Simulated assay, not measured.
Amino acid sequence: MQRGVHAILYAFFGPDETLDRAAMRRQAERCIAADVAGIAALGLATEVQKLSFAERLVLMDWVAEDVNGRLPLGFTIYGQSVAEQVAMVRHAEAAGATWLILQPPQAGSYAADEYISFFGRVMGETALPCAIQNAPQYLGRGLSDDDIGVLRRRHANFEVIKAEAPAEDAARLRTMAGPDFRVFNGRGGLGMIACLDGGCDGFLLAPDAVDYGVEAMRLYDDGQRAAAQAVHERALPAITFIMRSIEHLICYGKRLFAARAGLAVFDRAPALRPEAAELAALDLLVRDLGPFPLARESLYRPT
């Protein structure tokens, strides 16, 4: 799994609430133009729980077509049974995925051994590198450090943990994981520099301010920590605003990206509907962040 900032795409719908092919293509192209390390789709930001099985397969095909082998390509594997997830794995393999992110099923709350077995059976059906999305605050369940250790010993292709964790927790995972295992974080990039200080290998971020994340990590890896911090702080008000909840991310984060990239947003019900005061705040953030992707030299204008 390549170190860096990867973009996890939003789902764009048309006025009739069906998936918008042109908007999805434009989103992917804009993210590639922002020099992201990879593209992924079908995560929480992609509103995967609102998509039918057939729509998930269609999105895989669209995104694979748009990326066209130019970057690493990951798909979140979502499903309520081993059979459903394996069917998604097979389609992801055929589409050209280079890695997979496994989400726990939503079928209920069970003992850790049940989730370890579930993930293990899915991982055992593919040779692709696999991550697990460990986000109990969003998904209602997660794996402990010990659970992660068990899965690592059993499955060599379990190579990445996708956390949604504060910097100190991500650093603990990094220490626990060892050098041959990667720790990627999300949370919109909150605490990015502290996460990098703690050893995080990368981030999986929705597109709204992913160009700032790319530049911040580039500077950090070039040894320019202060400049990286300054770039991250430019984006921090927007990150803080959109990351109040997953629903807030989908409603306002998608609109933030769309306004920067010249796209229209149509919600698929049920959805958090935008409010006038929040849209006014969003307009200020759009003005400050600028067009997507922002020209590198524009990142250093005085605050």
Rank of each mutant, 00 (worst) to 15 (best):
Y78P: 00
M88N: 15
D169G: 12
R154W: 08
S81T: 15
L151T: 10
D146F: 13
A170Q: 06
I77R: 01
D113R: 15
A107V: 15
A177T: 09
G108P: 01
I148S: 03
E164W: 01
M88L: 15
Y78M: 02
N157A: 13
A107T: 15
S144R: 07
G120T: 09
L139G: 03
A163C: 13
I77A: 04
G149T: 07
L102C: 08
C130D: 03
M176Q: 09
G124M: 09
E93S: 12
G124D: 08
P129M: 09
C130I: 11
L139Y: 03
A107Y: 12
P104R: 06
M176L: 12
A167H: 13
L100G: 07
D146V: 13
E125L: 01
G96M: 11
Q106H: 13
S117W: 14
A87C: 04
D169C: 14
P129F: 02
D146W: 12
V150D: 09
K162C: 08
W99M: 13
M176Y: 10
Y110G: 01
C130G: 08
A163H: 07
E84M: 02
L102D: 04
A156Y: 05
D113W: 11
A83P: 00
R154L: 15
Q103W: 02
L128Q: 04
P105N: 03
G79W: 02
H155Q: 07
G149P: 07
